[in-house]
Simulated assay, not measured.
Amino acid sequence: MENQSKVLLVDDDRNISELIKMYLEKEGYECTQVYNGKEAIDNIDQNFELIILDIMLPIINGWDVLKEIRKKYATPVIMLTAKGETFDKVLGLELGADDYMVKPFDPKELSARVKAVLRRYKSLEAAKVLNFDKLIIDMDKFQIILKGNIVEMPPKELELLYFLASNPNKVYTREQLLNEIWGYDFVGDSRTVDVHVKRLREKIDTDDVNWSLKTVWGVGYKFEVK
Rank of each mutant, 00 (worst) to 15 (best):
90 V>Q: 10
90 V>S: 14
90 V>C: 02
91 L>P: 00
91 L>R: 12
91 L>H: 06
92 G>Q: 05
92 G>H: 09
92 G>R: 09
94 E>V: 05
94 E>A: 06
95 L>F: 11
95 L>D: 08
95 L>K: 15
95 L>T: 09
95 L>S: 03
96 G>R: 05
96 G>L: 07
96 G>T: 05
97 A>T: 07
97 A>D: 07
98 D>Y: 07
98 D>E: 14
98 D>L: 06
99 D>L: 01
99 D>A: 13
100 Y>L: 08
101 M>V: 13
101 M>G: 03
102 V>C: 08
102 V>M: 11
103 K>M: 09
104 P>Q: 14
104 P>Y: 12
105 F>R: 09
106 D>Q: 11
107 P>K: 11
108 K>V: 10
109 E>A: 07
109 E>W: 04
109 E>R: 14
109 E>T: 09
110 L>T: 05
111 S>F: 05
111 S>D: 03
112 A>S: 14
112 A>Y: 04
112 A>D: 13
113 R>V: 10
113 R>H: 12
113 R>I: 11
114 V>M: 06
114 V>Y: 06
115 K>N: 06
115 K>F: 02
115 K>P: 01
115 K>Y: 03
115 K>D: 01
116 A>S: 13
117 V>F: 00
118 L>R: 01
118 L>H: 03
118 L>Q: 05
120 R>C: 02
120 R>H: 05
121 Y>R: 04
121 Y>E: 09
122 K>C: 00
124 L>W: 05
125 E>T: 10
125 E>G: 02
126 A>Y: 04
126 A>P: 00
127 A>S: 15
128 K>T: 07
128 K>Q: 14
129 V>K: 03
129 V>F: 01
129 V>E: 13
130 L>V: 02
131 N>E: 14
131 N>Q: 11
131 N>M: 08
131 N>T: 06
131 N>C: 04
131 N>A: 11
131 N>P: 00
132 F>Q: 08
133 D>N: 13
134 K>E: 15
134 K>F: 06
135 L>Y: 07
136 I>P: 01
136 I>D: 09
136 I>M: 12
136 I>Q: 15
137 I>Q: 02
137 I>N: 00
138 D>K: 03
138 D>Y: 10
138 D>R: 03
139 M>S: 06
140 D>P: 01
140 D>H: 13
141 K>E: 15
141 K>F: 10
141 K>Q: 15
